[in-house]
Design a binder for these strands. Structure first.
Lengths: 232, 232
DNA sequence: ACGCTGCATACTGTCGACAACTAACAATCA
DNA sequence: TGATTGTTAGTTGTCGACAGTATGCAGCGT
């Protein structure tokens, strides 16, 4: 039941694709989420249900439910009877987002140390990272970096923490997409990883904590002017 | 436009009240949320949209949206095309919930120490607590306890953390309601608070962290058998 | 007895139309 | 002029009906 007129219609976000048998709200939510975290839909952008419904050739109900989901993700904000928009990102929120990341990573490290978990998977991530640096493959580098941090959280063996992490990382993706390409020093920042793993391996709590905190703060550096403010 | 037939109808969750001008979905979400965290709707309970709609005399749309909101809160779980139910609480989830609480409180304490924030508000909470103990007022005791912990988070001056905390505490309320009255030692546990504040005041990082961790773990004690498991 | 097929049922998912609300602007009157 | 009140346009909120999906059971064939 593919939509045969898809190619003819002016389409900003594209038609919904009948790829899977998931409910429409999920396909729509996924599509909107991608648009937001990629920066295509910028903070402050207004989401009008009727317009989206028409663009995607669905009724308003699944659109509304999809937007609800995104609201849960913290990507969209609703003002009753007035409208919905992509949540504005204040400098403070960006800062707090990275602050939370630091909290999560440091806490995960504590748990790893408390439980004597093997850090072998982290070494693997470091190797993947080195390879990406050697190949000068930026895509792979970003992926490997994310894998390293996610692995750190996973090793802490705390599912709730992991799900919070996934949500947080989504917003970090959005922030990174909105920045004017901070890729320059990513490779250099990647060099921080092995010492962290080494500290974890040798059970050095203090050092590990400090290294992670410093690493996270390095990642948080950004040009505040590059994130537009949408007050009101 | 109050519903004049409200008194006649059999009603399990009660009719929705036209108290405020909030959208129905919010009133319904609030009502369901209360029912869940109070334990009236137990984990595993199935939520049937049509039934709820009939009970509350509204259409299914706001019911669906309300359930979405509760899903975001982590209180309800949806299985596409099958149904929705109050999220089952495994022993592991309960444990992780308190683990997260520990992470949040310890991290908040670190931030308070990092920034030399005045802990005066915490002393006030301690006083309210003592008064409740002296009056043998259990309600006030619970409220004061919650106020203490929320204040700790608030002093860390991190809005994202605070909102995560509010969500977490909601689920802790639910867990407490499902336990067979663990009130016995609450007064005694309350005695842990002043030492924590003292440690924070004197900037003793190590002690503060340990006291908070121990306090949180004391709160987490529970009879695993008192929380039903709903596998499948 | 066993497995398959095809209803029947009880839900959730989706739709299109209508109601309610807000904000902005025009018209009215002191 | 300036404040107040209609009025209208644009949006979200709500509804009732219909379509789609999963599950259990009856009936059939082997």
């Amino acid at each position: 039941m593919a939509d045969q007129t898809a190619g003819l219609r002016r389409t900003q976000l594209g038609d919904i694709a009948p790829i899977q048998n998931l409910p429409l709200r999920m396909q729509i939510a996924e599509r909107l989420r991608t648009a937001i975290i990629s920066g295509r839909l910028q903070p402050g952008a207004v989401l009008v249900e009727t317009a989206l419904a028409e663009q995607m050739n669905v009724s308003r109900a699944p659109i509304r439910e999809a937007i609800q989901i995104l609201e849960n993700d913290g990507l969209v904000e609703t003002i009753a009877y007035k409208g919905k928009r992509v949540k504005p990102l204040s400098a403070r929120e960006v800062e707090e987002t990275y602050g939370l990341r630091e909290i999560f990573e440091v806490s995960a490290a504590q748990r790893i140390l408390d439980r004597n978990v093997s850090v072998a998977p982290l070494w693997e991530c470091c190797e993947a990272m080195e390879k990406a640096v050697h190949d000068d493959n930026y895509e792979a580098l970003v992926a490997a970096d994310e894998a390293f941090h996610r692995t750190l959280i996973q090793l802490s063996d705390h599912e709730l923490l992991l799900s919070l992490w996934n949500n947080l990382y989504m917003r970090i993706h959005q922030i990174m997409a909105l920045r004017n390409r901070g890729e320059r020093n990513l490779a250099e920042i990647a060099g921080n990883h092995p010492p962290i793993v080494k500290a974890l391996e040798s059970g050095d709590r203090e050092i590990a904590t400090q290294l992670i905190a410093r690493h996270t703060r390095a990642l948080a550096e950004f040009d505040p002017a590059s994130i537009a403010e949408f007050p009101e």
